[in-house]
Amino acid sequence: MSAVGAVETAREERGGRVSLALSDSWTMTRRELAHWARQPVQVAVGLVFPVMILLMFGYLIGGGREVEGKYIDYLVPGTLALTMAFGLESTMIAVTQDLNKGVIDRFRSMPMANGAVLVGRSVADMLQSAVGLAVMTGVGYAIGWRAHASAGEFLAALGLLMLFRFAMLWIGIQLALVAGKPEMVQAVQILVWPVGFLSNAIATPESMPDWLGTVVEWNPMSRTATAVRELFGGHGAGAGHPWAAVIWPLALLAVFFPLALRRFGALSK
């Protein structure tokens, strides 16, 4: 056996499977970070877009909203949740692009951990969303939003948003694996918008027709937005079951996480 091969075998004996899987996942995460470093403009545009939504609704459309309390306290948590929901789209685009590149064949012909490609994707997307949340709350603060919350409540709110993003991430991965082709991404993009806005992110369900209000209440994203509003405080609309903001994303993950992993493993059919 060659010298290089010997090094590899030694490391594998020392490390064991789990540590190899972790190291592969970290390598794949670094790959995504290296992509960011090479495309700072694209990353910046990704961050600016949700800020634009926030400003657009805050200033242009939101002036006359009839909400209890300050509309900005209603809007900021809503747009944070909306940004997490739209993450589905960016995850799907990234995975679809990867699958349609030759490099995925090389990864699959190498002795690396099977799911490392997906784990790398997840970590990178979660990091990007964390940065996105920081920017959004910063801009929110600048335009007059205030969190009336303890540090614990503040972090819990961010945690719920990230949990929701994590669920969206695995839905995005599954959709990319099922659809496969870039053309399908467009179809999903078109669908994500109404689903995102069919929520209480921007407007209260009470301001809508009954049937629409009901649909909106059922949207998992509404649950996250409501729970986050309550944790941030300052807005009275305490409609409900904060646990739903934990249960919904977990339920979605319970379905889509195993589906996506299985689908990825089955690519070689």
Partner: peptide, 23 residues
């Protein structure tokens, strides 16, 4: 070509080397 087109040549080879567990 089974390469990461966004990255440079050295970045590609290093990444693959790590995935072959060379250290």
């Amino acid at each position: 070509a089974a390469l990461d087109e966004e990255l440079g040549g050295r970045q590609n080879l290093e990444m693959f080397g790590r995935l072959y567990h060379l250290g």
